[in-house]
Amino acid sequence: MIAQKTFREIRVMALVYTALLFALAAPVIWLWPDIYGDLKGSTLLKNPGFDFLKRIGVGVTDRSEDIAYRNWVAVMLFFRSVNLLGIAASVLLGTALFARERETQTLEFLLSRPVSRGQVLWQKSWPTVLCVLVPIFVVNTSAILLSRSIDMELPFWPLQLANLHGCLFVLAILAFTTFVSARCRVQAHVAFWVGGVVVSQIGIYLIPRLRAYSLFRLSDFDCYGPILAGNLKLPEMFLPWHGSAPSLWLLLGAALFYFLSWRSLRDLEL
């Protein structure tokens, strides 16, 4: 019943989020033939201020249109859409999980029902996770069909691996938001703390010498580009002895914050 209630509360937001993801994805695919020509002629991309922008510029203006298109998808559908909308959805839906219940004084009702706090966390979490992650898979997978309309091809499995990695990034953010939500009394405070962390991480990402310490280093073009190009495969994503294992760190981060959320909720005194 808690899961059903949670789903009922967030389903409209999930639909709007799906529509926004699609609205951001479709034009960048349909307009690719024109954009490719523009990009190749762009002088700005050849000499940008940041090294990561330079790599993006080189990637999306590659002489091979197939490679350039994959890089374009990595930038637009993953580096941009997943990071931007995925984080927004995580923060919007995650902040409400517990802090809003405390604000509206319904958390006491919920926690005094004959159901364990672990169950309360689980039944509130999984519908939220589904509503945030499924749209990423659906919309980004639909890019394969959209690409055919412009005579371009996107490889199915590398795209799913990129989806998996993007979802793990969003999941880690959602788990962190859930943890903060379980600790804060006011929803606005959760948004403040999570927003503060995200903005500071973006700030760190934009400083070349500090970029390696930014969370966004795990979800940027340098991650998605190799995955979509087929150069970063499942073992390299998850097994540290095969590579940098960026997906593993995201998975562990999500698990850690889920555990911390459970502990916070277990020890919570209203």
């Binding site: 209630k5 509206t104 004084q105 009702f109 005094s112 004959p114 159901v115 364990s116």
Partner: peptide, 20 residues
């Protein structure tokens, strides 16, 4: 949990879900 299975508790602050 076992206690709550046998109890009915009415919180002091009115706890009802507005959207239901």
């Amino acid at each position: 949990l076992e206690i709550r299975q046998r109890c009915s508790y009415l919180p002091g602050e009115t706890s009802v879900y507005q959207e239901m």
